[in-house]
């Protein structure tokens, strides 16, 4: 038992972090929010070149996967930098397509692994993220996974960088079931939320060190310190759930990770907003790009209550 990322995994995450730090993601996010996808697509290619999407695609389809631990490590970094686009959905689509007939999988999966194609997925009753940017759109209803012929109009999300569209009905049947896809979607979302929360905490710690009131940095006040300490605690205890789920790939573990990481990220977002005061409430200030996503990820791929229900129902199978 050694429950730590190994040197290679840490180096992979660090290189992705460096790539994204140099990429000016706030400008990319603002472009994406306006429906201008050019800079986002360029960044997408670089993320794909780093091997991120290939981690969810088996070697038989020109991927490197399945490697859920590395994928989780990568999604922490994507979340840390609030990278826009249907990241989780492309991973989910890749897992769904593995259930399709080999010819279809062979035709569609390599382009997902290479980053040539963005994919999105609309689960039953939900919107597809960035349906206007994705070339491959999958509608996923129980027992019916279809290639959707198109998308409806974009609806605004609370997170401006998430452009939500309904998918048009009909289309070719791809597969019947996809048990594992939801686990991958939740794992990736949990990791993304964890990274988002870590970034929110970092930015807020930086802010309260330099913001002065009553003649001292506000970070010297215990009321401020303790809220930030609580955020750190919540995030540090979500982290092992995320990587534990990546190792077991049990649906209930992914659900637990999703609930804990999204709650931790959201609580950190609330704290970040409070600690920044009014400046944090503005759309112009960069913090908003992280804040709004923390809210959106809570409900994406299963709200906390849905995930908790799965955690307790897991006990039924062991009885």
């Amino acid at each position: 038992m050694r429950f730590l990322l190994d040197a290679e995994q840490r180096a992979f995450a660090a290189s992705l972090d460096a790539l994204l730090t140099a990429a000016d993601t706030p400008a990319v996010i603002r472009d994406w929010s306006r429906g201008d996808h050019a800079s986002g697509r360029a960044l997408w290619s670089r993320v794909a070149d780093a091997g991120v999407f290939a981690l969810a695609v088996p070697e038989a389809y020109e991927g490197l996967g399945p490697r859920p631990v590395e994928l989780a490590a990568a999604f922490v970094e994507l979340g840390r930098h609030a990278v826009p686009g249907p990241l989780v959905e492309t991973v989910t689509a890749a897992v769904l397509l593995e259930g399709a007939d080999p010819g279809t999988a062979k035709r569609l999966l390599p382009a997902l692994a290479s980053g040539e194609t963005m994919a999105t997925v609309a689960a039953e009753g939900a919107y597809a993220l960035d349906g206007d940017a994705a070339a491959l759109r999958i509608s996923w209803e129980p027992g019916r996974i279809r290639l959707s012929p198109g998308h409806g109009p974009v609806r605004p999300s609370l997170d401006p960088a998430r452009r939500l569209t309904p998918l048009l009905p009909g289309g070719d049947l791809l597969a019947l079931t996809a048990d594992e896809a939801l686990t991958w979607a939740r794992l990736a979302t949990a990791a993304q939320a964890l990274g988002l929360g870590l970034a929110l905490l970092d930015r807020t710690v930086g802010y309260v060190k330099q913001r002065t009131q009553f003649g001292v940095p506000v970070g010297a006040f215990q009321a401020v310190k303790h809220r930030l300490a609580d955020a750190r605690i919540a995030l540090e205890f979500a982290r092992p759930l995320v990587f534990g789920a990546a190792l077991t790939m049990e649906p209930c573990d992914a659900a637990a990770a999703k609930a804990a990481a999204c709650e931790a990220a959201y609580a950190t977002a609330r704290t970040a907003l409070q600690m920044h005061g009014a400046i944090g409430y503005t759309a112009e200030y960069g913090l908003s790009l992280w804040l709004t996503k923390a809210r959106a990820l809570r409900t994406a791929w299963g709200a906390p209550e849905e995930c908790r229900a799965l955690v307790v129902s897991a006990g039924d199978r062991h009885r």
Partner: peptide, 25 residues
């Protein structure tokens, strides 16, 4: 109280895994 029971299970698992990581370090 279902959510609170779930949070107890999730919290205990988180503490176990956190400790495994600390022990590994």
């Amino acid at each position: 109280v279902r959510d609170r029971v779930a949070d107890a299970l999730i919290g205990a698992r988180a503490y176990q895994l956190f400790t495994y990581a600390a022990a590994s370090r």
